[in-house]
Each structure stands twice: as structure tokens, then as C-alpha cells.
Design a binder for these strands. Structure first.
Lengths: 363, 363
DNA sequence: CAAAATGAGTAAATCGATTTTTCGCAGTTG
DNA sequence: CAACTGCGAAAAATCGATTTACTCATTTTG
């Protein structure tokens, strides 16, 4: 009914100006906090703003200025807790500084990543927080470089010669996982990963292997790395365990690993589902640690041990670095690593303790 | 090194115009696909665009036009799979139509919800997809109404007299859950919910109760509803089961429910963690069904039965309705309900079958 | 006391598009 | 031949701010 007229034109700076009896320029100055305005006029401007319910149009405002107060954020996905929290944090931080965050999901595609970036460039964003699909050497970072965009790379990166980077200290966390598992007596561990090209997967693998072989030089570390998708990983894992079981029978000695370390969240899920399929239970039949924590991991039985990434810290330092650059900060790019927490939960035990429901007869 | 000069001013429509030897207006028309331009000139424009790598500045473009090609999306949170998928879908759909999606999290706060909305109004968004914290009667919807904004309400809503609504058919799904549980022999069921004010919680509760009491009139349905936060719910649930156990001893008959139906995801987690604490296992000691599915639910042991919401459908129809309104569609607001799928998994069994690890001695 | 500096404010240019208006020119028509 | 029609394109207005340049007073300074 009254809808049509509700759709009134919002009042502009000129409406405020004429109501206050000053020029638009003066209004702009008052609102920007310039002090060279007569207090009386300033008050009249404030009054007019109040009466008209005036609010600056950020679009028009950004039009004139060189750096627009828009930040772009590109994440590989939004479905996981990690990136969900990340977006929430980034959005809050951007808002605090009066910026608007435009978020987009690259859906794990580098092609899409670049397209989104191009669109953000069209918007002339002041800066971009990019969590690349693979690593810092992808086409997206290249695009940013070529177009002189300012940005920060997070998560699946180590360091870059053009952009600041912020990520979890995967290597250190993985080393700690190695220490924990070896401390419990594990000497044959399977590491599961996806995306050999992802900077973090490599760091996690190397961190784990380095620490493990230092503590237990003779130990065995198997690795199952799928290239790009979760589907193949599932099959690879099945084949891997099939092979173990085969040897089991042949030699009468358990060739099956006593623990699995998954380098990423979906891998943890795939491992769990493979355990289910085989009727294995944690930690009696096999131990499990996953990189990336999730809320459900502590309520299931057993609770799943996990590496917790410091989302707040990553987001905070990423934004800090980004705004420093936006405001003209110079100097070589910084590569920042934030420490993780390793939560050892019930899914990890000592090998050979407890009853087995699996096929192998060990010890 | 070459960075500074990379930060070149991007070419504007005037650059294209002068290179093509026409006016800016002509360039605009060619790019908009107006046919009243001499083919020869059109070609020269295209060439110039190509050579300069020109792209329209969406900000400047939106400036002049009445409806800006920006869609706002406000979700209560980004951390869950549901809203993560929702944002992903919405973003994709907006992009398909040449719109930019600006997403923000109200972080389950109605105050913040309204603030975000005000900021989106400042941006003069063409439309808003709002998933309200509580229901359609909050201050945010009020704000939208008062300011003549066009929008669609989703998820925690039933119907509205000013906006189209799209949500999962919670009531029907809950009725199906009731049928399934009663079919398995359950006659004493606890329903767990949060936020009595949330439209969906009420619909789910009523849908469940209605169907259940119709099928098994004498059955017992207990309800534990926390008002606003998960913390209290945890305590309430503990008290509830403590009370059950107390009676257990006193009467020697199990007053403990044989199944729990959680009306929302976090409730499912809280229920699971309470089961853990008491050493109860699904489905032997108690059955569990939760509203909202999650990836992990099918890989844990037992797999958790859940109601799957049709995210794609909700997002799709929400955007459809929104764009219809943006393009001037009239008519009374539509309230749309999308059917859910109920996945019965291992967490549901028949009462009294299987061994018990809990305290009560039943049958 | 004249010249320079300062203060307070305004008109106009600008940002980069879109849209409306105007204009020139060619071809028709009365 | 004047008037009219149409077409294609240019010129100008517009969107809503910010910023620069400039105008008067008033005050300070040499």
C-alpha cells in the first residue's frame, strides 16, 4: 500500500547542504572531521543530517577517491568451519576499519580464482585476501602481480616475493604430531594428503617426516597423496589397506600401519569412512590424527585428535599486513607463520594395546 | 621494481572512445548492445576495448543507474555447512546474473543484523537475501519494510506479509521423523531445541508432535528448549537426564526416553556429547536423529540419522523470487516450502534391542 | 600602512560510467 | 524549395560524493 512511496529517493549531501544553509563541500568537510569549520555551521550540518537521516553513499564516496574502501576475499570454499570462521573474522576486521568485504568462493578452481580476481580488480578493490587453491605460484597471484594489485596470501602458502603471506605453521604442528605418535610407540605411520601442489601439504609432510625420522630413524612412513580430488583418494586408500592386508596374511606379521596422520580435513573424513568400511575402531585397531579441527570431533566416540589452526590470528595478521600495504607500507614481503595447537584426543592410543576387531593378528 | 608503474590508471570509457574515434556515449551503447550503431564504428570500439584491455567499472556504472547490481546476503553465521553452502550457491546465482554478492554474518545477533542491513541500504543494494536470526518478525525485516527495500527471507521463517519467504519444510520432515521413530517402536521421545522464537524450531516441534500423537496417541514426548544459547541447553539436558535416572532408581522402570530428536545441528552435537559423558551408545542405549545433515555424520560410528535440507533449492528459489521483485514483479508475497530428505542411519534402532551400557536395567 | 598570511566557505572540476538532449546530415515529401 | 523525417553520433546532464581552486574577510607581519 504505502510501499511505493516508501521507495523514496534517499537524501543526498546536497539536501543536507541546503537544509543547513551551507554548501555541499562544507557538509563533506564536517562529516570528514575537518576542523576549519565554524562550530555553528558544523552544528547546523549535524542537525540537518539528523533530521534527514542522511548517510553517506559509500559508492559515490568511493568514486572520487583513489583507493576504494572495499576489500576482496577469495577462499577455496565456504563449507568448512575453517574458511567459514576465516570469512567471519575477515568481515569483522574489514568492517572495523570502515571497509566493505566482498567474499567469493573459488570452489577449488584456479580458473575461477582468476576470474573472481579480475572482477575484483574491476571493482578497484583496495586490497585482496587470497587463499589460493594450490599455492602462491598460481595464475591468480600472477594476475595480482601483473596488475599491481595489493594483497595478502593466506593458508596454502609459504612465502612469496611479491606479497605478504600468513599461514599456520603446518610444519611445526606436524612435527609435534610426529613426536606425540612416536612417543606413544608408533613406528609405522601412514600419512594421507591431497593436492601435492598445495604448499601446506608439502610443508606438513616434510615437517612430519623430518621430526619422525629424527626421533625414530628406522621407522616406516607410508604416504598416500591424491592429486586433486577426494574421490581418487578414497580409492587409493582402499587399495593401500588392501595391500597391507594381503601382506598380513602372507608373512604373518602386521604390515598395517598403527596410525594415520591426515594432512587435511576431508582426508580425515575419508580415513574414518575407510576404517568404518573395514570395521576398524580407533584407537584399538588404528590411531588417527587429522590436520584441522572441527566441532564434531570432540563429541564423537572416540574424539578425534586434531591440529587446531589459529584462525583468528591468521585473519588478524593478514588484515594487519594488508592495511599496512594499503596505507603505503613499503619493505620486502613478510612471510608469517602462526603456531597451531595439537589436541591429542581419544583416537590416538598406543599400538598393540586393547582388543582388535580387524583381521590381522599382531603380537 | 616495475611495481609503481604497474599501478597505472586503468583505461576508462573515454580512453576507448578517443582510440576508436567516437564519443564515450557511443562506446557505452556498443557495449550495452544497442543496435543503432554503424557496424564499422562498433567494430572500432571492440578493437579499442581489446587493445586497451578495457573493462567497465561496475562502481561507476552502478552510480548512474537506479538499481545497483549488488545483492546483499545476511546469514546468522558462516561456520556451518548449511550456511556455507547457502552463501556459495547465492554467490554463484548472483554472479550468473551479473550481480555482485556482498555477504555478512549477523553472528546470531539481531542488533548486528539491523546494522548490517542499514549498511547495505547505504550501498543501495538492489535486493537482500536475509536469513534472520529468529524469525520474520525481527527488527531487520521491519527495517527493510520501513525503507522500502526489496528482499527475500529464508530459512528461519514461515511466511510474511511483505516479503517472499523460502525455507525447508521443517514440519513435514519432522512428521516423517516421527513416523520413522514410532515405526521402530519408540514411545518415549525427547525433543531438543534452541530458540523458542525461531520460526523453524516451532514448526519442527509442532510437525513432530502432531504426527507423533496421531500415530501413537498415548506416547510421551518430552521437550527441552533452551532460549538463546547452547551453553544453557547443555546444562538443561544434563538436568533432564539426571531426573530420568533418578526416577529410574525409584521406580525400577525406565523413564528415560528411547530416542532423541534434535531440532538443530548444535543440539545434535550437544546431545552426542551428553551421551558420551554418560557412556551411552547409539543406537543401543538411545536413538538419535538430528535436523540438519553434515558431512561427518556418515563417517562416524554410528552414522547419525539426519534431516537434509535442500540448500540448492532454497537458494535457487530465493534468488528467483528476489530477481522477480527487483525486475518489478508485483503480487502478494509467496511463502515457499522446500521438501527435505530424511536419512535414517545407524544412530536409530529399535528400543530394547541390543545390549545396554547405561545404568538402567530395562526389560 | 601596505603586503602577506590566515580563516571560512563556495563554486567548479572530478571520478567513470549512463541517459537524455541536441545536432548535423541525408533523403522524402508537399 | 521549404519543411519534415530519421538516423547516427556527439554534447551535455546526471548519479553523489570529494577535492581543488578561488573568493572574500580578517588578522598578522615587515
Amino acid at each position: 500500500m504505502a510501499r511505493r512511496q516508501d521507495q523514496q529517493r534517499r537524501s543526498s549531501i546536497h539536501d543536507v547542504a541546503s537544509r543547513a544553509g551551507v554548501s555541499a563541500a562544507t557538509v563533506s568537510k564536517v562529516l570528514a572531521g575537518v576542523t576549519t569549520v565554524k562550530p555553528e555551521n558544523a552544528q547546523r550540518v549535524f542537525d540537518a543530517v539528523e533530521q534527514l537521516g542522511y548517510r553517506v553513499d559509500p559508492l559515490a564516496s568511493d568514486m572520487r577517491r583513489a583507493k576504494r574502501r572495499i576489500i576482496g576475499a577469495i577462499m577455496p570454499e565456504f563449507e568448512s568451519e575453517f574458511f567459514g570462521q576465516m570469512i567471519t573474522e575477515l568481515e569483522g576486521l574489514a568492517e572495523q576499519r570502515g571497509y566493505t568485504l566482498v567474499a567469493a568462493s573459488s570452489r577449488e578452481s584456479e580458473a575461477r580464482e582468476k576470474e573472481i580476481l579480475a572482477r575484483m580488480h574491476d571493482w578497484r578493490v583496495a586490497g585482496v585476501v587470497l587463499a589460493p587453491v594450490r599455492n602462491e605460484h598460481g595464475p591468480a597471484a600472477e594476475f595480482m602481480k601483473a596488475n599491481g594489485m595489493t594483497g595478502v596470501l593466506i593458508d596454502r602458502v609459504l612465502s612469496d616475493d611479491a606479497f605478504d603471506t600468513v599461514s599456520a605453521d603446518s610444519a611445526a604442528a606436524s612435527a609435534e604430531v610426529a613426536r606425540e605418535l612416536i612417543g606413544k610407540g608408533h613406528r609405522h605411520i601412514l600419512v594421507v594428503g591431497l593436492g601435492e601442489q598445495a604448499a601446506t601439504v608439502r610443508a606438513r609432510l616434510d615437517g612430519f617426516r623430518g621430526a619422525a625420522l629424527k626421533l625414530a630413524p628406522g621407522m616406516r612412513i607410508d604416504v598416500v597423496l591424491a592429486e586433486s580430488d577426494v574421490g581418487p583418494l578414497r580409492a587409493q586408500l582402499r587399495d593401500y589397506f588392501d595391500a597391507c592386508e594381503g601382506k598380513d596374511q602372507g608373512e604373518g606379521k602386521g604390515e598395517r600401519p598403527t596410525a594415520v596422520y591426515s594432512l587435511f580435513l576431508k582426508g580425515t573424513l575419508v580415513a574414518l569412512s575407510e576404517f568404518r568400511r573395514r570395521g576398524w575402531h580407533c584407537p584399538n585397531d588404528i590411531s588417527l590424527v587429522g590436520f584441522d579441527d572441527a566441532e564434531w570431533m570432540q563429541v564423537t566416540w572416540p574424539a578425534i585428535a586434531a591440529v587446531v589452526q589459529p584462525v583468528r590470528e591468521i585473519a588478524g595478521h593478514a588484515m594487519e599486513a594488508l592495511f599496512a600495504r594499503i596505507e603505503g607500507g613499503e619493505g620486502p614481503p613478510q612471510a608469517r607463520l602462526e603456531p597451531c595447537r595439537v589436541l591429542m584426543r581419544e583416537s590416538v592410543g598406543s599400538p598393540g594395546s586393547g582388543s582388535h576387531s580387524g583381521g590381522g593378528n599382531r603380537q
